[in-house]
């Protein structure tokens, strides 16, 4: 029994000292929490903030600096100012970009399109890049995030920033605002359903329904052609009918409608004579 107890004590001491060393002997580093989607308010952003966003993504969520650092795992990106054009002109370049912005975008979304000599996956003779695509997988940058990184890269590399601040969050973002994420709604197939869904008749008079915030559309086909109607639906403020205010009609119908629905609307409206 004495032997038994001393063996037990020995084992507990050993385990305890392992635990104690792991807790006290080495520094405890709190790992970063899992990344979350960056809340971006594109509307109120100037170029400086946009570049700062790119910087944050570059050093954080994008995990770019894991490899693009001074340890030689991947090409240094602060030198693209002097390198990018040379890469584009390289005989090995087989991508589809024509300018530096296009080249940078391509190297973010399709890293294997052009691999800098010496940085390819082992054994592929620099035809395959070890870098993951940044639009999908674990990095999964959204459109605006990608644009911000591009802008940051241009600025950081000493290039002129040609990327423009995008005006909307891209399709995924609007999808997420819809009720069921990842569950696309079925397209509507009748004009009446569409009109009900988007509440056209709250403002417009179409046949019997009467709204007076927007022009009467009951005979719109008689005075306007299909192209005008299309433009009016997609970009309502381009031309305002006399007597009505600008900015009343929602300008995001284009992102909410399926292509078939848009055509259906145009077909129907242009036939109202």
């Amino acid at each position: 029994m004495r032997q038994f107890l001393s063996v037990i004590a020995f084992m507990l001491i050993v385990i305890g000292s392992f635990s104690a060393y792991s807790n006290l002997g080495i520094p405890q580093i709190e790992p970063a929490p899992p990344p979350t989607e960056e809340v971006i308010d594109l509307g109120s952003m100037d170029m400086g903030q946009f570049l700062a966003l790119g910087d944050r993504i570059f050093n954080g969520k994008g995990t770019c600096t894991l490899c693009h650092n001074s340890l030689g795992r991947a090409p240094m990106l602060d030198q693209i100012g002097s390198n990018a054009q040379a890469r584009l002109d390289d005989a090995r370049y087989a991508g589809s970009a024509t300018d530096i912005e296009g080249y940078l975008r391509e190297s973010l979304t399709d890293p294997s399109a052009y691999v800098v000599a010496g940085f390819g996956k082992a054994g592929t003779n620099d035809t395959e890049s070890p870098m993951p695509g940044t639009e999908s997988g674990s990095i999964a940058l959204s459109g605006p995030e990608l644009a911000a990184v591009l802008a940051f890269l241009q600025d950081n590399g000493g290039l002129e920033v040609t990327v423009e601040i995008p005006t909307d969050m891209g399709d995924e973002a609007t999808d997420e605002n819809a009720a069921e994420p990842g569950e696309p709604r079925a397209p509507f197939t009748s004009f009446q359903d569409l009109s009900d869904e988007f509440a056209c008749e709250a403002c417009h008079t179409i046949g019997e329904e009467a709204g007076d915030l927007g022009p009467n559309l009951s005979a719109i086909g008689a005075t306007r052609d299909r192209d005008y109607i299309r433009r009016a639906l997609l970009d309502p403020n381009a031309e305002i009918a006399e007597g009505f205010e600008e900015g009343m009609m929602p300008d995001d119908l284009g992102t909410q409608l399926y292509a078939t629905e848009l055509e259906l609307l145009i077909d129907h409206l242009s036939q109202l004579k």
Partner: peptide, 28 residues
């Protein structure tokens, strides 16, 4: 924070990576 790397994300409240001390205590 992945169940299946790059394919199925762990979105549970426990998806964080613990400190080494915590891990060592669990192992102990």
């Amino acid at each position: 924070h992945w169940h299946v790397v790059d394919i199925m994300r762990d979105n549970s409240p426990n998806a964080f990576t613990p400190t080494l001390g915590y891990a060592a205590n669990v192992v102990s």
